[in-house]
Design a protein around this nucleic acid. Structure first.
Length: 416
RNA sequence: GGUGGAGUCGCGUAGUGGCCGAGCGCGCACGCCUCGAAAGCGUGUGACGGUGCAAGCCGUCCGUGGGUUCAAAUCCCACCUCCACCGCCA
């Protein structure tokens, strides 16, 4: 949720943000009205409660004669309080609904929709390959990826990673975790099933609700951002506790509803995959700098894998509701001669923390922290990019030097 | 899954209907004392909301949600979590 003070003090800024996202600026005015309505209801109820408390307290020291009349008066006050409290509850609910309807205020990124991103830089040389094989062909030759049997066992968009495919994931995991720990992250294995409040608090039951699998009373997370954000829900950090950084490794589950026909081949878009996610809790004034650091760590990792990539500044209309700004790193995909999103980092400022009630104590008092997340490595797409970019004419794949220690020193993966 | 016990202001605890709208100890902060410190003494100590220029005032919060009552930490109901033991199990 956004800061209500901002809405009261500078509603036009929030309306501008809505326009940049291509969403309704009127939502801001509905929020202002709900806010005013709630404050009035609270004042009314507070005053009645105060009167009722006083009347009730006086009974204790009253004489036996006075009592019956005073109790009658207290009873009637109580009835009024109950009425006012019902009105307050309704006003609270209305405010919450209007509050949640407004996504985070965008900052600095380009306005517009999915195609209005801005390319910030391109790093590394695209490989020169004649008739490059795609990752499915390479993965099959290496006996690393088995999509046919994945479909046989679990349906479309499932796969087996076998042999060197599995080893690649383990290697990527180790490399990622080591880099994260060097940067001061705490490694975490979080739960992959969470309660509704955790999913709700991170904003994944809004526009993304159709993406989420549900099992009995739990949701399957689509990213470990969810448990890592909810980890400190309802807590207050001391100022010295931030920044705090976690690197979570978890499976991720996505229904991929509405993506029929997109990325149907191979393991680019799948229902289940593993990912290492960076998550930071920082003081709000440090959030923009932390966002740059997360991006730098993502780039460091892509560089270690020797992948050609570009960085884009995602347009406002393509941001999630919690994000104020987002950068994606896209690796080159030789088989399709296009860029493929490999990592993504979002600055959620205090939006998510306000929903999850995560604060820190500073000299200025208690205030919501800022939260940020960024992909360090999403396994299937990293493997896709590795295989395709480092392939050789014979179908063998060169292992980047940084990964070799985790693959028994192997320099090249060769078809069996 | 079964049985029993427990959840109170950072931590430990007191508290079985109105003197608890929460006491004490520890911790922490400030002050006094001191050359400095410790000890000692004193004062203070949370969150959220409303209102106000502000000081302040008012309201809410004793795991959560309901209920009884003029009045609930305290009584009733449901739920959650933790601990112990038993059973089962990777």
């Amino acid at each position: 949720m956004i800061d209500l003070r901002l809405v009261r003090d500078d509603p036009e800024q929030v309306r501008d943000s809505q326009r940049a996202r291509g969403e309704d600026p009127e939502a801001v005015d509905r929020l202002l009205a709900a806010d005013a309505g709630r404050r009035e209801a609270v004042s009314t109820a507070d005053a009645l409660r105060a009167e009722s408390n006083t009347a009730s307290k006086a009974i204790r020291s009253a004489s036996a004669d006075e009592r019956p009349g005073m109790i009658e008066r207290a009873k009637s006050l109580k009835a009024q309080v109950q009425e006012a409290e019902a009105a307050q509850a309704a006003a609270d609910a209305a405010l919450l609904e209007a509050h949640r309807a407004v996504p985070n205020v965008v900052s600095d990124g380009p306005p517009g929709g999915e195609d209005d991103f801005e390319v910030l830089r391109e790093v590394g040389a695209k490989p020169t390959l004649e008739n490059p094989r795609d990752h499915v062909e390479l993965g099959t030759m290496l006996k690393a990826i088995d999509v046919d049997r994945g479909a046989k066992v679990s349906g479309s968009r499932f796969y087996f990673l076998t042999g060197v495919g599995a080893l690649l994931e383990f290697g990527l995991l180790q490399l990622a975790m080591n880099q994260a720990m060097d940067a001061g992250f705490t490694p975490v294995i979080p739960p992959a099933l969470v309660l509704p409040h955790a999913m709700e608090g991170t904003g994944f039951l809004g526009a993304h609700a159709a993406e989420v699998y549900r099992v009995d009373d739990h949701y399957l997370v689509g990213t470990s951002e969810v448990p890592l954000a909810a980890l400190h829900g309802n807590e207050i950090f001391d100022a010295a506790d931030v920044p705090r950084r976690y690197a979570g490794f978890s499976p991720c589950f996505r229904r991929e509803a509405g993506s029929y026909g997109k990325d149907t081949r191979g393991i680019i878009r799948v229902h289940q995959f593993d990912k290492v996610e960076m998550f930071s809790y920082v003081a709000p004034e440090d959030a923009a700098d932390e966002h740059q650091r997360l991006l730098a760590w993502e780039e460091q990792f892509l560089s270690a894998l020797e992948l050609p990539y570009r960085v884009i500044d995602v347009a406002a209309g393509d941001l999630g509701s919690s994000a104020a700004r987002k950068f994606d790193c896209e690796a080159w995909l030789p088989s399709q001669a296009r860029w493929l999103e490999l990592t993504s980092t979002s600055n959620c400022t205090t939006y998510q923390a306000r929903r999850l009630n995560i604060r820190y104590r500073s000299d200025a008092g208690t205030a919501p922290v800022a939260t940020l997340n960024g992909t360090l490595v999403a396994m299937p797409r990293a493997i896709v990019a590795l295989l395709e970019n480092h392939q050789q004419a014979d179908g063998s794949v060169v292992v980047p030097a940084a990964l070799r220690p985790y693959l028994g020193g192997r320099e090249v993966l060769t078809p069996a």
